[in-house]
Simulated assay, not measured.
Amino acid sequence: MGFLSSRRKRARLAPELDDQELGRLLKSLLATTRTGTIATTDLCMAQLSRLLDQGEGDWDRRTHRIDVVADFLSASHLPRSWVAREPRNATALVLHAWTQAARVDAHDQGGDTSDAAESCLRAAELAPDDPTPWVALLKVARRERWRQPQVFGVWNEVLARDRWNREAYMNMLAYLTPEEGGSRLQVLEFVDALVARTPANAPCVGTELTAQVLQYRAILGRGGYEALVARTHWSQGMAAQALDRVVHTWGQPGFLRHAKAIADLNLLAYALMAGDRRAEARAVFEAIGGVVTGWPWEIGGDPLTEFEQAQRRATAGQ
């Protein structure tokens, strides 16, 4: 990925991150759907197909694009309409299932994912080498609270097709938390196994730090004395080790090349500031270039406000 210059950029929420083609698609979809004409669906389907089917085999980029588009269209009828018109289009089926999962909060068991699993399995049959139907099914499994043997079966199907799929690792991490289908011990075992074998710049390399941010959020959520001293979480044990492992490499130009690299840099900047490691955070903010992700800045309030305040603190006194 190409990093932006160190000159301060105006902060902005950009779900597409540095994927300019994806950003143009989102703007085009927004403009097209506003017209309300009969031809709108056909035009949108053509736009989606052109981008989402681009570069077959780059599963990291394809997963990122489907994830962002599904969130963008979570309140739209478009994915369902696309499947109705092209029932044997694997991309349409995956987007439809992913969009259904995006509508349902991870802690809400009442959401509608009624035909999402079937859509994933049909897509997997149509595109046997593509991991995204299985990633989508993993998301559906979380929403529907599948039992662990079933979820691990889906997980293994993803890994057989894309060993370091970031979205799959993040979903498994969330599923294994005590808040969903697992325990703190399972999270630790999952992260330990990951750290032991993952290349330093793999797409899923942010999983370990994400686990620490999730634990930090849980500490803040408990309130009281623990929340008051939550900063110490980042100065000891596994949290400090997680930061130390990546702080001097992630911000280097060209080190992280996966589609959601800027999301991982946002994660790192947040963790460094939470641990009051301001000098190290400065270089990370420069690499981010003002492209802000909702997570994890939303933990403290409005993401843009939290990001800008943290950036000012990091650069104060230079």
Score class of each variant (00 low, 15 high):
G224R: 13
D42R: 14
D53M: 09
A31I: 00
L43G: 10
V191K: 13
T63L: 11
E144A: 11
E280S: 15
E56N: 12
Y216G: 05
A193G: 15
D18A: 11
Q20G: 05
A136W: 05
Y169N: 02
G254W: 05
P87L: 00
A90H: 11
A227F: 08
T305G: 08
E144F: 04
L304I: 07
L256R: 14
P131R: 15
T198H: 12
L17F: 09
N266K: 06
V83Y: 01
Y216E: 04
T99E: 06
L194Y: 10
A314I: 01
A160M: 05
E21F: 03
H77N: 13
G290R: 13
L26E: 09
E306D: 10
G317M: 09
T41E: 14
L51G: 09
A75P: 00
L17W: 13
G294S: 11
A141W: 10
C204L: 09
L214Y: 08
P303W: 11
V104K: 13
R161V: 00
A101F: 05
R88E: 10
R62I: 00
H77W: 07
G55K: 13
A218V: 02
R161F: 01
Q20D: 12
L95I: 01
Q241G: 08
E298I: 02
A106K: 15
L272W: 09
W297G: 08
D53Q: 14
R85A: 12
N171C: 03
A196I: 04
A314C: 10
T198M: 14
Q236R: 15
L52E: 02
R7G: 11
Q241I: 00
Q47E: 04
V292G: 14
D162P: 00
S6N: 15
G182F: 04
Q252H: 12
L267N: 08
R282G: 10
Q318K: 12
L173W: 03
L29S: 11
G301R: 14
A202W: 08
